[in-house]
Design a protein around this nucleic acid. Structure first.
Lengths: 239, 239
DNA sequence: ACGCGGATACTTGCATACAAGAGCGCCAGT
DNA sequence: ACTGGCGCTCTTGTATGCAAGTATCCGCGT
């Protein structure tokens, strides 16, 4: 059923970055696909993965697939028991709380650094806020969360510590799964926009104390919605 | 030259944890060895690694070795260019600064949480301080840094956010390499002990502000020593 | 003498074959 | 009928072979 190919595993995707041609590594592509699928629950918590089946579905061999899975294990999103099986980890509230701590610590510190910058250009942030307003108006949760991500990343960029944002990504996926469950409620979105606005206002005013308080509330909101979501999707949660 | 073995790759190490026998995965063992070697500079910055050579030296095949290397790449300690080579990343001050930010953010936040705990048992921390005093007296830098690590980890344990400590490990190795370079100076060790003592005192007193200030100074000290170390070992640094 | 081109060795990426263990079902014996 | 044991199947872990690309070095031509 594989597409016809002349070479052992056919042509590999080529992408042009600047002048150099880089071959997209199968391992990376598979990781991105799996991570995306886990994040938006197409691979729901508790789903069991079979390396051979997955390899067949994705038209790759087990080697790059295993490397991708190893990265997911590192991030705590997948657990693999030798000779038994591989499965997507259930949502554990303790993990979510740890991720909340990580995120709040980083954002709080990044906000403080960004505030100390004498020139604080918040136009990008304002644009993203407007985008969120627009998505809220047309009921586009996916677009909303994309702008949400971009807004928080922009704060890290302004602080100069974008590396922290990157290392946080695997841990943050524990929060993203919860957020995904609480997607379709417009009330929540309205609240998030207001909180974002308050954070941006505080940043523009250089008010560290107020901003940190808003960030803390913002980060803890996810945890507040957790119990209700757990009652709604009991199979997705552990403990 | 391989040790005689009857099975394809011989006996695998068995460890007894509680009642269950767990087979130590070759991939994990290799990762631990490589990470340790990079941390204490037995694999110095810039060293080029050959998968085939390394596999032969460690008596493993390339598959588990590659998985271990993939984890190191994830942590930013190794870079691999397809069809060209694999090498230990040079020490980049920008990476060190990012790691400093990560560590300071975490420790600061964890300290704050630990301070809010009404019962703060600092006996473990005091014991570790005494151990550092002892190691300083007998000029045992390795023992000193082991106690150093244990002390900082204990603060995270007391905060309840040990998960943050764990996710920080790969990033922290960028700092550890710098610390390793500044090992043999007793003056530095004396200074570190004093700072540790100040932090523990602040924790016992529940003084959040003072503790955060000490932690910040403590974390930034590594960066202060960096320029001198760079002049001493120019080949280890990038840029 | 100097520059250029091709063969070669060495690198990583991927695919596949094999090994070993865990779980489960079926069958036989009691 | 029930229980114990054997074996089959499916799982992941590991080893190895092949493909493709890059850099280097040596020889040849100018």
């Amino acid at each position: 059923m594989k597409p016809d190919r002349h070479l052992p595993n056919g042509t590999r995707a080529l992408a042009s970055v600047g002048r150099v041609r880089v071959r997209e590594r199968t391992s990376d592509r598979v990781y991105a696909e799996l991570a995306s699928a886990i994040r938006d629950l197409r691979l729901p918590p508790g789903a069991s993965l079979s390396e051979t089946d997955l390899a067949e579905q994705l038209h790759v061999s087990r080697t790059p697939l295993r490397e991708a899975i190893a990265r997911l294990v590192e991030g705590g999103l997948v657990s693999v028991v030798p000779q038994v099986g591989t499965r997507v980890e259930l949502i554990r509230l303790s993990d979510v709380e740890q991720a909340r701590f990580v995120r709040e610590s980083f954002e709080s510190a990044a906000f403080e650094v960004a505030c100390e910058n004498p020139v604080r250009d918040v136009t990008v942030l304002r644009t993203l806020l407007a985008e969120q307003e627009r998505c809220w108006g047309i009921h586009d949760p996916d677009g909303f969360f994309a702008a949400d991500e971009a807004l928080h990343e922009q704060i890290f960029t302004m602080s100069g510590y974008r590396g922290a944002w990157q290392v946080m990504q695997p841990m943050k996926m524990h929060l993203d799964r919860i957020r995904r469950l609480s997607l379709p409620e417009p009330e929540t979105l309205r609240l998030l926009i207001d909180e974002h606005t308050a954070i941006v206002d505080a940043l523009q005013a250089g008010n560290v104390t107020a901003g940190r308080a808003h960030i803390s509330r913002h980060a803890r909101r996810v945890l507040q919605t957790a119990p209700a979501l757990r009652a709604q999707h009991p199979g997705f949660f552990a403990d």
